[in-house]
Computed example of a mutant assay.
Amino acid sequence: MAQARQHKRGEHTKQRLLDAAEQLFAEKGFHGVTVRAIAGAADSDPALIAYYFGGKRELFDEVLLRRAEILNQIRIEELEACEKNAGPEGPSVEDIIHAFSHPLLDRTEFGGPGWKSYFALVAQITNSPEWGGAVMPKYFDPIVRRFLESLRKALPESADEDLFWSYHFLSGALVLTFAQTGRIDHLSGGLCSASDIESVHKRLPQFIAAGFRRICQKDKGDPTP
């Protein structure tokens, strides 16, 4: 019983450290945060970071992995349901894009501050030459390739090059949405809000699907997309 209580306390401490690191990394970046600052925010001893994780870089990896595993499982389930419930011709491009983007947007809107910090961190990493090419493939490339397989079936005449570029543009749209910079608020004079994720839900799959179709199904003799 005492061992179980000790294990529970240890897990609680570990989660506090992960939560604190997630928020601070999202706000200040990897290099702007010290081990001592993370421990202080978690009301813990800095030595516990070494004990539980090994170091700051290992803690950073664990922060990314913790929610990536949850997110990727949900996305796979949504894609598989989308494919299972589709007719003989398979799911539409819109349905596939929705299955890909919905779990992210849903947690951005309803998941609480932890998910907001996580997506802010993902947006930051994606836009960083230092991290984007090294970190993102580790956590997200397998799930992206699974979705691209489904899109390839929905767009059977597409060239792989066009599919990858189309995904690249989809990723950029999601990253800008996560960032919630307020740019659209100013541009629209308050008509639109960067925090209005429901409006993104309504528009993003249709917008991105149209782009996929335009690029991937273009006349092969047409040099322009």
Rank of each mutant, 00 (worst) to 15 (best):
Y51R: 15
Q6G: 06
F119A: 03
Q73C: 07
R66P: 00
E77S: 10
Q124E: 12
A39F: 03
P137Q: 11
R5N: 10
S188P: 11
S166W: 00
D160C: 01
N72R: 13
L121E: 02
R36F: 05
F178S: 01
A2E: 12
E62I: 03
G32L: 08
F207S: 14
Y167A: 12
E94W: 09
P91E: 03
E69F: 07
V93D: 00
Q15T: 03
D160V: 06
I97D: 01
S92Q: 05
C82M: 13
I125S: 00
F140N: 09
S158N: 04
V35N: 01
W165F: 15
A194D: 15
A99Y: 05
R145P: 00
T34V: 07
H201R: 15
R183K: 10
R67V: 03
V200N: 01
C216N: 07
R107G: 00
L65W: 11
G10Y: 08
K84F: 11
L121T: 00
G133I: 05
E58G: 04
E80T: 13
E78Y: 12
S128H: 01
T177A: 13
R203A: 13
V135A: 14
D219M: 04
P137D: 11
I184M: 13
A4N: 08
F100K: 03
G133P: 01
R146Q: 14
G182R: 05
